[in-house]
Design a protein around this nucleic acid. Structure first.
Lengths: 207, 207
DNA sequence: GTCTACACGTGAAAC
DNA sequence: TGTTTCACGTGTAGA
């Protein structure tokens, strides 16, 4: 790649007056004296202009430019790309974190219990709590994983099993459904609470 | 910026044999015949190399390179920067969405009611529901905006007002707190349900 | 052969 | 002033 001269060196015809166009431009001549410009002169000009344009476009894309120099333009572009790459990485990390925390239960932000979360942790499918209110009334609390039509099927199953619903309230939180209901019990039945609980668990498992 | 020639044109001494160093390099001479290289030759070389190095670094940073050309390197860098910028924008949008949905209540994803949201819509501070379970027992459901220590103060206020709590369940969903409780009522009191409800509302408003 | 891309040395302009 | 940056035309090597 070293410039070593050539037979063509020294054949420049200089100081040519040229009234129009590129005056004073160096000319090139063969041994027979026919003048011609370098063959790739235009191509080289196009190449230079293209590169210049690209650099301009690059400079336009980079927000902070410390200098207008060609080298510094590329330098700034490099640091900008690094910054953008870091940005993307940080944002992806944040997004991943948020998705994870959002998936495993948004109620993690409340200090109270998260039914769905607790259910998944303990591995049980549902949580049933039965409390005897009065002689023939039971207060039941059911927490189970929410499914489409789950509540309806629970109600159908409970009525089919002979539960007489007095008052029922349902609320869902994320993936869990809490059913708080007051049912009429079979008066006089011994161990009614435990039997009702087992029956409810069977119903829920059947859903 | 037009090349117009100069008095120095045509003074190149070519075909100089040079045993050492940069043989054949063009020399430059003054009118007095003293030879010298162009003054900014080394500086120009350094500049070119610096630019070349920057381009190399840029190429190393861009993952996809369609061509090794200088122009295409910059072109690829431009498209890569655009891609990164778009990436950042999309990720920021996603993050903003997730933050918003996470802040305004995760229950928006469940098809059921969102207590906090409904409360805010209707403009009421709390929702109280009282149902008579038995002669001297009441089942109360309270939904109110969750505040720090709100549940504790509610319990203190209720016990201070003479409520005898039999069983209490509390669950929070985002900004709302649902208290489902069974209390002992004053046996024989007429319109007990309505009076209890009003009393609870007063308590909640006092919190 | 042509065509492309590159590095080179250089003059000039800018600071 | 001198230093730096740039565009230019050119030679040349590789497809």
């Amino acid at each position: 790649m070293e410039y070593v001269g050539s037979a063509l060196d020294g054949l420049f015809i200089t100081k040519e007056g040229n009234s129009k166009g590129r005056v004073g431009r160096r000319r090139y001549s063969n041994d027979d004296g026919t003048e011609y410009k370098s063959k790739n002169l235009h191509a080289e000009r196009r190449r230079r202009q293209k590169l210049s344009d690209r650099l301009l476009a690059l400079r336009a894309l980079v927000p902070i430019i410390t200098n207008m120099n060609k080298a510094t333009i590329i330098e700034d572009a490099i640091s900008y790309i690094e910054e953008l790459q870091n940005n993307v990485k940080v944002l992806q990390g944040l997004l991943y974190e948020m998705e994870a925390s959002s998936e495993e239960g948004t109620l993690s932000r409340s200090e109270e219990i998260d039914p769905a979360e607790e259910m998944r942790k303990s591995g049980i499918q549902a949580e049933v709590e039965v409390t005897q209110i009065d002689g023939n009334k039971l207060w039941i609390k059911i927490i189970f994983e929410k499914t489409r039509g789950g509540f309806t099927r629970l109600m159908e199953a409970m009525t089919a099993c002979g539960f007489e619903l007095i008052d029922t309230s349902v609320t869902t939180s994320k993936g869990a459904m809490l059913v708080s209901s007051c049912v009429k019990g079979i008066h006089g039945e011994i161990n009614e609470v435990q039997r009702t609980k087992e029956l409810l668990l069977q119903i829920i498992n059947g859903i």
